[in-house]
Design a binder for these strands. Sequence first.
DNA 1: GTTCTACCTTTGCCCAAGCAACTATACGCA
DNA 2: TGCGTATAGTTGCTTGGGCAAAGGTAGAAC
Lengths: 188, 188
Amino acid sequence: MSDDLFDDPRLTAAGLFFEVHTGLNARFAAQLCGHGLSPVEFEVLMRLARSPGHQLRMTDLASQTSLSTSGVTRVVDRMERDRYIMRRACPSDRRSSYAVITQSGLTKLEQLLPEHLALIEQWFTGQLPADQLDTVLDALRTIRDAVHPGATAGSSAGDGERAAQGRSRPEERGEPSSDASERVVVEV
Amino acid sequence: MSDDLFDDPRLTAAGLFFEVHTGLNARFAAQLCGHGLSPVEFEVLMRLARSPGHQLRMTDLASQTSLSTSGVTRVVDRMERDRYIMRRACPSDRRSSYAVITQSGLTKLEQLLPEHLALIEQWFTGQLPADQLDTVLDALRTIRDAVHPGATAGSSAGDGERAAQGRSRPEERGEPSSDASERVVVEV
DNA sequence: GTTCTACCTTTGCCCAAGCAACTATACGCA
DNA sequence: TGCGTATAGTTGCTTGGGCAAAGGTAGAAC
């Protein structure tokens, strides 16, 4: 049978990428777990910590992570219970609410980040000579921009090629509404 | 507040990697979903298709995927129900059983692989010039080897650090390599 | 103002998967 | 031969997270 179909170099490439992800993820998860956090929760903390005002609307949090909005609702539930973040009503749109990282959440991050950075260096960045790393990061940036599910807040427009994200129907295409550009974060 | 802690280039690097994974994964999942497969199920089919005899022991399947053994039991349950694979008793060790890909499973793979390869090319390999791609693959191989293939199954709580205990080596899975050393096949 | 449409978040229901406990072997050793 | 320990796979229980539908709200059209 078409056995070389199964040995196509593209498959090998993709397989390699996913294996690396699995490996890194396992290392990081183990560390985070020791701090009582799941990878998803860590990502939420990081996103909030790096956002202006230390806050994000639930929907934006969803589009920046790999979660659905209901997934965000639930993770925010847990983390609010644990006092790492809190909800805050959006003054300009009563449908929305912000997730805000608390001091406790920031402290948690500051506690575990050094260890986390060491892990990244140990298993990822430190594995490669500087110039190779640069090439890799460059490549990742290229691919990220292509595949871009809307990871960054100031979403770029006009890429004209947006596919369904997530496991939903391959035909769905939910665009970040133009509404988003209007909503400037008002400091409180 | 240590704001540059949150902007460490290592974090950016890791973030990029994970964002790319999220993006690729979403694209691939959408396609597979259209064929009635989850990414995990696809990986199981691929692993089996590429294994000698088109089969793997449940445990080996677990260590090659990111699943626990119970996860493998369940995914094999589903796929056996759907006739993509079947269980086969291991003649030399009655504790073990093999998962074997069926003709139907192979056909399924052959149907969707061309489309899948196109996706890989569109969003990953095709995004980079050949020499950069080579560098990237080289880097991925380095990291994969460091982080070790088949990063075990548990996100076990607070384990700290546990390297491969030199047991199951996903590499030289030559064949009926049931228990490390050669051993007599005890017929019953 | 009223109504229609588009959105935001949460909830009900369900499935996938992990851990731990359990069963059945396998093999070393006295 | 029988016991002790290690391994393979399955199952009970629980949790995380997705989809779809349900409330609330914002604007636009009229």
